[in-house]
Simulated scan of single mutants.
Amino acid sequence: MPFHAVTGHGPALDIDHIVPFAEAWDSGASKWTQERREQYANDLGAERSLVAVSLGPNRTKGDKDLAEWMPPARDATCTYATDWIAAKLRWKLSADRAEVKALRSVAAGCADVTVTFTLAP
C-alpha cells in the first residue's frame, strides 16, 4: 500500500515500492518472516526501492507487475525496468515468464543500461 503525502505547495505524491507488495509476495516474500517483510516495506538502503511518484500513475499501477503496467512516460521505461530488476535481485525475488518477456521487450529499446544492486541485509 502506498504512503500518501499531501502538500499545499504542489502536486500530491505517493511513496511507491518499485515492486509492489503483492508482486513481492507472489515472487517469494510469502516465505519470509514478518520481520523480513517489514524490512522490505521500509527499505531505505537502496536508492530506488521507494520512489516519490504522482498519484495518478501510482494508483493506476496498483499491485500490477512489470508485464501488466509500465510508466506512462515512454522515457521512463528503461529506468523503471532497471529499478525493477535491481529490486528483484536485491531481495532475491523471482520473475515469471510474462515478466521476463516484458523485461526483454523493454531492454531491447534501452541502450547502455547497467543494473546495479546491493543484496538486502
Rank of each mutant, 00 (worst) to 15 (best):
62 G>N: 08
66 L>F: 12
116 T>W: 13
86 A>Y: 00
96 D>V: 10
3 F>V: 14
39 Q>R: 08
59 R>S: 08
23 E>Y: 04
16 D>E: 12
28 G>Y: 12
92 K>P: 03
8 G>W: 11
121 P>Y: 08
43 D>L: 04
7 T>W: 03
72 P>M: 02
99 E>V: 01
67 A>W: 01
66 L>N: 14
98 A>V: 02
120 A>T: 15
26 D>I: 05
9 H>G: 08
99 E>M: 01
46 A>D: 13
106 V>H: 06
32 W>R: 00
42 N>K: 05
86 A>D: 03
73 A>H: 06
4 H>Y: 13
33 T>W: 00
17 H>Q: 12
69 W>F: 09
66 L>V: 14
77 T>I: 14
120 A>W: 15
45 G>N: 15
94 S>H: 03
105 S>A: 15
46 A>M: 13
46 A>K: 05
24 A>N: 00
98 A>Q: 13
50 L>K: 07
48 R>G: 03
100 V>D: 12
92 K>T: 08
79 T>N: 04
7 T>L: 07
73 A>Y: 05
65 D>E: 12
96 D>F: 08
97 R>S: 10
45 G>L: 14
24 A>K: 02
11 P>K: 14
36 R>V: 00
108 A>D: 14
62 G>Y: 07
57 P>R: 03
1 M>Y: 12
48 R>Q: 09
31 K>L: 00
85 I>Q: 09
81 A>S: 11
54 S>W: 09
80 Y>H: 04
4 H>N: 10
75 D>W: 09
60 T>F: 06
71 P>Q: 04
57 P>T: 07
114 T>R: 15
45 G>V: 13
112 D>V: 05
48 R>H: 12
18 I>Y: 04
114 T>S: 10
43 D>P: 05
114 T>Y: 10
83 D>N: 14
11 P>W: 12
8 G>E: 11
